[in-house]
């Protein structure tokens, strides 16, 4: 067992690493950004308040996920009486495990690293690697040569490969 956070620096890092993917995760079910952010902020506030007594066994991500999921279920149950919320939705949320968060964390890391690329390079990289366009489609879309697309992807991948080393701890 280890402490989830030892000081505000740990907390800041945890918050910045997981805030965006967790909000996106919650919003998949809650369908309301404001409420999704509120749920995640409330989760982090509880963690901060209980920082002296929270020990984790399965890693920070599992703990965070479980805490956020519980808050989301509470939220959905409260809304059930006044809104059309299907009990099936709550049941499906209950069955989720922390691996549901992985693709969102990966996406966040990729986008963070891509933000360090030059605008054009980033656009080409995202069109190809995240949106699935072929080199030819990108060349036509941006009115550039296919060779230029290839060069851009090669540069972006080199950057990605270097920078991703800094995020390995999130991608285990």
């Amino acid at each position: 067992m280890a402490k989830l956070i030892n000081n505000s620096g740990d907390f800041e890092r945890l918050f910045k690493d997981y805030y965006t993917p967790m909000c996106n995760f919650i919003n998949q079910y809650v369908k309301n950004w404001e409420d999704s952010e509120e749920i995640i902020q409330s989760t982090f506030l509880n963690i901060w308040k209980g920082r002296d007594r929270i020990d984790v066994k399965g890693g920070a991500k599992s703990y965070l996920f479980q805490a956020a999921k519980n808050n989301m279920i509470d939220y959905l149950r409260k809304r059930k009486s006044t809104h059309e919320i299907d009990e099936g939705l709550i049941e499906s949320v209950e069955s989720l495990d922390s691996s549901s968060l992985d693709p969102l964390v990966i996406k966040e890391v990729i986008l963070k690293i891509a933000s360090g690329l030059k605008e054009k390079n980033r656009e080409i990289f995202i069109l190809n690697k995240l949106e699935g366009l072929t080199y030819e489609e990108i060349a036509n879309h941006l009115n550039i040569s296919k060779r230029s697309v290839e060069d851009n992807i090669s540069r972006a991948m080199k950057h990605m490969k270097q920078e991703i080393e800094h995020y390995k701890y999130l991608l285990k």
Binding site: S8, E12, F15, K16, D17, Y19, T20, C23, N24, N27, W33, E37, Q41, F44, L45, D102, P103, L104, I106, K107, E108, V109, I110, L111, K129, L130, E131, G132, I164, L171
Partner: peptide, 25 residues
């Protein structure tokens, strides 16, 4: 493999987590 996984995530909204943290703190 990671890029493939990321490409399957649709409607992902990037948020400014630094600003969110500063406001929260």
């Amino acid at each position: 493999d990671l890029l493939k996984i990321a490409s399957k995530v649709e409607a992902y909204k990037p948020l400014d987590s630094s600003k969110a943290f500063n406001d929260f703190a």
